[in-house]
Nucleic acid binder design. Structure first.
Lengths: 327, 327
DNA sequence: TTCTAGCACTACTATTTCTCAAGTGCTAAT
DNA sequence: ATTAGCACTTGAGAAATAGTAGTGCTAGAA
């Protein structure tokens, strides 16, 4: 159990380190506290023994450890007031459009990325959680048509396909068969259902079934397994912890890896903080995430930044966005 | 006019520099040529006076100047044979799908980016070149619907919109008005045509016209002005010329800037090479680009790499992709 | 007890100095 | 016209140096 003074010191160190990005000295702290630097140093030793602080070398100031950040987030942090400018800019986005939730989300996260210099991620539900709700076909000309796939979680995708020497009627028959028979199937499993339930039927009723079947099979095969949007990738490069080339490569590569990002998905309704090793993306980053639910759509939003990220501010921003999205 | 030997030397220097990424010495060259390093050095002085070569400092080897690359590309380069592996992998992509041209394009450029460590760009026609061909609406439930916009150049976009307290009939009336009256308009101008030609009419015939009009107005406002796909951004970070943090930031920021990328668009049917200052993106890169035309779609594809990029190989690859796409 | 002033000590950072190797330009001989 | 030879330049890296920020510890004060 930490004493009040230890908590104060830890809190100050975390806050100062977040602000200045370099090890915090006893001197800096003692100015804010009514005691001498020597006293602060003694407490620092204690906090270091408890695993909450670290040194970069023997005679350096202190830096919070992961456990230190964790303690801060769990016990010391107090959600920051959002500043007026941030709020105003976000309001403009939310007010402006009565339409297009997903654009709205993306724009607001873009704004947050630009303001904070962190990276944002918008994550739809994974394909195994999306069920096929409806498919639709729009003919373009003799050979080309657009196939539109709609899921129950509000995810929509379209593909332009070419089907030669097949009449539109036949395609439409197939579409209505699919809409009658396999709606409600998780997107992941549609391809196989197509094979075992639809293929035999269209084999009998539909001319040119081979080519039509193949096309739809492909469409569902190609349906994105994960629906990810990464916003403000480059902003994070401004953070001093990412100012060496190898680290940049590593982070950017991970941010482009859909499989890794899929891990970010969460079911938890709260705002959750995953510091360093607590997340699966990278030991040097913190991910703060939450989910949103609207009648027509649901998904996850996350902010990725260095462990030294401004927890108070990001939590406040996410809370604000979440509540605005949901109404 | 260059002598044969000068051309040989220039060619060797360009090729060696592309391969090794460091200034080329007279020694290296004279091994490949039947003459001494001193002779090569004399010729180098000559080539430098002509502006085809440069030095990084007084006693360094030579590096091609932009004019040097230009000369190489115009007169010395001979399209490289594509190696079997490259060809095979690309063939798999092209053969595999009779469907979805744009996916096919994207996949093949992803592959090229990975093989070459350059970045690829797929660029649809700008919105002022796309004419509205058709719009479509798919109702989802009482309040939500998907609006699909199709252009003559094969670009398709969808938006999910929420329209409260309006009957589907009224929306459909508006859709067919739009389809009757302003098809053929450049996408850029649709919003304003909507205002001056559609708004007055639906004002009379359609109930709740205000809300419907606003929605469509928004949809066209938000329609992407440029339809860009950047593939393999991070591969380019492996190039030695981009191994300092500031340069990386600069390049990545430019690659994310749609306005800048829009400049890349070209009408030229050939494969064109833009070295350094010749392009509008960045003085340190070369862009090699061409256009593709299919009955249903057209656009530009481009490869971005350092000036020291493997011209022969990239030209061959682009040629191959272009010809495969077009059939 | 608890706190703090004071001081010796450590490790990083920046700057300078030194050395080495790579490669050139020029000259004189072939 | 070509080439061997040599003096010269420069950058890159290692080693030496000085300066500084910050610690840990001790002993005395509160």
């Amino acid at each position: 159990m930490l004493t009040k003074r230890q908590e104060d010191i830890l809190k100050l160190i975390v806050m100062k380190y977040i602000e200045l990005a370099k090890p915090v000295s006893s001197n800096l702290i003692c100015k804010k506290l009514k005691c001498s630097s020597a006293t602060v140093r003694n407490e620092m030793v204690e906090l270091e023994n408890l695993g909450l602080l670290e040194k970069t070398h023997t005679s350096s100031g202190r830096v919070p450890s992961e456990a230190g950040y964790r303690y801060y987030v769990d016990h010391l942090m107090q959600p920051k007031e959002m500043n007026g400018e941030e709020m105003l800019k976000l309001q403009i986005i939310f007010k402006n459009q009565n339409l297009m939730l997903s654009d709205c989300l993306k724009k607001s996260l873009q704004l947050i990325s630009d303001m904070t210099n962190y990276t944002s991620i918008v994550l739809g539900k994974a394909s195994h959680e999306n069920q096929l709700k409806e498919i639709n076909v729009i003919p373009l000309d003799r050979e080309n048509m657009i196939i539109i796939v709609i899921t129950d979680k509000g995810h929509v995708e379209h593909k332009t396909v070419t089907i030669k020497d097949v009449s539109l009627e036949e395609v439409k028959k197939t579409v209505s068969l699919i809409n009658d028979l396999i709606v409600g199937t998780p997107i992941d499993e549609v391809s196989s259902k197509l094979e075992f339930e639809i293929k035999p039927i269209i084999g009998r009723y539909v001319k040119e079934h081979e080519i039509i079947y193949n096309t739809f099979y492909q469409v569902f095969q190609e349906f994105s397994h994960q629906n990810v949007d990464v916003v403000g990738r480059n902003n994070m490069l401004k953070q001093p912890e990412f100012n060496n080339v190898d680290k940049i490569k590593e982070i950017l590569t991970k941010l482009d890896d859909e499989n890794l990002l899929a891990n970010i998905e969460t079911d938890n309704n709260d705002i959750k903080v995953y510091i360093g090793k607590e997340n699966n993306l990278d030991d040097d980053v913190t991910i703060i995430k939450t989910t949103y639910h609207t009648p027509s759509e649901e998904g996850t939003i996350a902010i990725v930044g260095p462990k030294r990220m401004d927890y108070d501010r990001v939590v406040a921003l996410l809370e604000y966005i979440k509540s605005n999205i949901e109404k």
